[in-house]
Design a protein around this nucleic acid. Structure first.
Length: 417
DNA sequence: TCTGGGGTCCTAGGACCC
DNA sequence: TCTGGGGTCCTAGGACCC
């Protein structure tokens, strides 16, 4: 038997844990650059604030003081998540962190799951200051569904137990297939086209038809909903496969030097993340795009993916990202977003030690290595000149790089194409 | 003007090889 | 005339998730 515990309005609850004046207030947490709403307390939901709504629209709608807000602070949320994990680890046989605010619990061998879950919630609230809900079921998908039910019943116990098949079947009649974990908007629309609305109707669709419409993923969801567990608890965290640093610009970019600085900053941050995870990248993807929302304006989006000599070196990654970006760049567009994605990540210990570098040390040889790597990849003469320049503060802010990091990195590689 | 960022998995189709 | 067929690898794109 599985349980899924998740923090209610997690980011908001984290902010409240450290600022009691926010309690019982309508509160939202905003995305990077304060672009849009990514977490809402139920008071904010009651005011009509929607998930993902642009903040500039929401802000206008409410008089000052009615809606409190915070910029996101992922360091804090990560810490709070670890606190939750530590509390839970002592209460159940095993815990699988699923996302920053959700954990699957192994409940095998435990009895009286409902009151035990009520107790788990109380302990997490006491020790980690996070209010939660718990869903129980024989598969992960059912536990997830139960959790959603528990969350909807605001006045309830915060626990929903779907281990009884009769309880489930009654519920399946009333719940839409689209509410199931793994059935998103596109799949729900496909199901509606063949006359399926409720979960109960979804379970009546023959396997081959489900497979044709929703692929093996849909088939698995169907089996899980029947109580046939296909998704085991995984206790070892999966190895990370990719890592991205992407940002929308505060103001549109139409000059290459700004794009160059942005890509350099993203690659710098990506290299830092890479080393933080003890990984080395064997491929890179760089993309640029204009605003996908604006109509009547010339739009352009392009990306390039290429192999790297496995590396975690800032200079090399920066040089590669900038050279690739230059190749994608077209004059005459107002760019809205760009990004650097590192893929084919390999644990550092699996690579010969001479293949990677640390951030400190002599820079000159590494600049030459980076130049060399870029010219090998993009053709001789792609980079003719390289020098060290101070990265402007704005691009550091854009990439969410802290001042302390800025001083550590100091200069950046500037390349000209 | 302003509309996030970071992930995973699956499938189809092309290139290439034998 | 009859232009196979299976395997692998890579990439693009779609869908989903938090």
């Amino acid at each position: 038997m599985f349980a899924l515990i998740d923090g209610n309005s997690f980011y908001c609850s984290c902010e409240r844990a450290f600022d009691p004046t926010l309690r019982r207030k309508a509160l939202v947490v905003l995305s990077n650059n304060d672009g849009c709403v990514i977490a809402r307390t139920h008071e904010a939901k009651d005011l009509g604030v929607k998930m993902g709504e642009p903040w500039h629209l929401v802000q206008k709608r409410y008089p000052a003081g009615q809606l409190a807000w915070r910029s996101s602070n992922y360091g804090l949320y990560g810490d709070m998540s670890r606190r939750m994990f530590v509390v839970l680890r002592d209460l159940v046989p095993s815990v699988e962190p699923y996302s920053i605010d959700e954990m699957f619990l192994d409940m095998t061998g435990l009895d009286d799951l409902h009151s035990r879950s009520v107790d788990i919630r109380a302990r997490v609230l006491r020790a980690a200051k996070i209010p939660t809900c718990v869903g129980i079921g024989p598969t992960k998908t059912i536990a997830k569904l139960a959790n959603a039910v528990a969350k909807k019943d605001r006045a309830g116990s915060g626990v929903c137990d779907l281990s009884d098949v009769r309880v489930r079947e009654a519920l399946y009649q009333t719940m839409a297939a689209g509410e199931v974990w793994g059935i998103g908007g596109a799949s729900a629309a496909k199901l509606e086209r063949i006359g399926v609305k409720s979960i109960a109707q979804f379970l009546e669709v023959p396997g081959p038809l489900v497979r044709a419409q929703l692929s093996v993923v849909g088939e698995r969801v169907q089996r899980e909903l029947r109580g046939d567990s296909c998704l085991p608890l995984s206790l070892l965290p999966a190895r990370r496969k990719s890592l991205a640093v992407t940002r929308s610009f505060g103001q549109r970019v139409s000059e290459w030097p700004q794009m160059e600085q942005a890509l350099a900053a993203y690659a710098t941050r990506a290299a830092e993340k890479l080393r933080g995870h003890q990984l080395v990248a064997s491929a890179m993807q760089v993309f640029v795009m204009t605003n996908r929302f604006s109509k009547g304006e010339p739009s352009y989006a392009n990306q390039v993916t290429f192999a790297l000599r496995p590396t975690n070196d800032t200079f090399e990654l920066v040089a590669m990202a900038v050279a690739a970006g230059r190749r994608l760049w077209r004059d005459g567009f107002r760019y809205q977003k760009s990004g650097v994605v590192l893929i084919d990540l390999v644990p550092r210990e699996e690579c010969p030690p001479d293949l990677f570098a640390e951030t400190d040390g002599d820079r000159a040889p590494r600049i030459m290595t980076a130049l060399d790597a870029v010219n090998r990849r993009f053709g001789r003469g792609t980079l003719r000149q390289a020098s060290l320049v101070q990265t402007p503060a704005w691009s550091m802010r854009r990439a969410n790089i802290s001042p302390s990091y800025t001083t550590r990195v100091g200069d950046m590689l500037k390349v000209r194409s």
